[in-house]
Design a protein around this nucleic acid. Sequence first.
DNA 1: AAAAGTAATTATGAATTCAATATTCCTTTG
DNA 2: CAAAGGAATATTGAATTCATAATTACTTTT
Lengths: 227, 227
Amino acid sequence: MTKILQRNLYREVADRIGDLIEHGELLPGERISEKQLCDLFGVSRTPLREALKVLATEGLIELLPNRGARVVRLTLKNVKDTYDLMAALEGLSGELACQYISDAEIAAIRQLHNTMLEHYRNRDLIPYFQVNRQIHESILAASNNDVLQEMYSNLSQRVKRVRYSKQMTERYWSQAVKDHENMIAALEQRDSQLLGQILRDHLCNKIEVATLAGVIDTEDDKSVVNN
Amino acid sequence: MTKILQRNLYREVADRIGDLIEHGELLPGERISEKQLCDLFGVSRTPLREALKVLATEGLIELLPNRGARVVRLTLKNVKDTYDLMAALEGLSGELACQYISDAEIAAIRQLHNTMLEHYRNRDLIPYFQVNRQIHESILAASNNDVLQEMYSNLSQRVKRVRYSKQMTERYWSQAVKDHENMIAALEQRDSQLLGQILRDHLCNKIEVATLAGVIDTEDDKSVVNN
DNA sequence: AAAAGTAATTATGAATTCAATATTCCTTTG
DNA sequence: CAAAGGAATATTGAATTCATAATTACTTTT
């Protein structure tokens, strides 16, 4: 049952601009030139401007009346706020998943979990994070709550460009793995309260925020950087 | 420090259309005619279409390629999903509020609480709900999390048009008031875990969903259970 | 030479125009 | 008479054009 995805031009353009932001080709605080992007994508200003409005609603850019658009400059607080929110949503996803998830789906997650452990033992950071994400996504999918998934996806988009998986200390990492052990156990017992609690408290997000503390500029943004 | 709110035409139009939907002047599933709205608002199609795209992103309408837009038809499941999410967000707002709220703000909420109790004793349903909402909004504001407030606001918008305060049974009502007693107590003790828990479990939302069960068309959006 | 003021340029906001897709209404055919 | 086919109409998608606000470049003045 594959979802019909409508390919409007504006949506296409919005996604492409989102990619540019995610991959750092459009920098935080950078002014977005309509003409430049029109030339780049080969579209007129109408769909491009529609895309900008949508991206502003999604929180990726901000619109300054009569002065165009710019990429949102993420502050540490903003990222922290977002992660707090994502943790709460993950908690809910866990609670709901316990109600709706099938044995087969649990088994699949257990499988992923084992794979993740293997990566942990080998200290393969990238594959570890990849499988880690798959586990969380599986639980989210099992929540059977479309609105939740939509919201989570949007929040995830916003902070994608500053997501780091580096600098994971051994101590935090082992704790994260322990969290996952408990998660799987709670899931297999369908203990919704417990799984919710674990996911809300799961260290993962907090680690990332801590890591980011050194990366993102702490001060407010009104700075006109970027020539 | 008062926030600068930009008044773009498209944003103005989007809000106006949102009002039409909220007040039932545009009905669920109803086709939205661009021309009709252009005439109504006295604007050209450009800003109107931008507004439609934004409203689609906000989840109020849906866009059918080459076939215009229509007001989202809320299913019971959709509303339930949304309320579950809102409860989780309220829980988070409570947790955070305990960390950031000032004594003065707590006192103000206590004041609102007393007013609400008065309305409860008099069985003044409308004023009761008004103050009730103010309390929840105060906690949300005290959470000091802008992203959270933005998300909550969006979700609230989506279900506004089906919010009912009627048909509150005496039993549920008294329970809701008890919940509020506990909330205030937790807040005054700054017990974030407890307040979070109370708000997540707060009956209010569930009551509304129960009430709505008779109002909204139950027909599931083919989202049958998992396999 | 620095600051202030003004004209020229550029970019944005919004309306209009052109092109495509969908819908309606009428005719034709079995 | 019902169904199918096809113009005529209306609606949407996207480009272009026009108007207005912001930025830059250039004088002028002190």
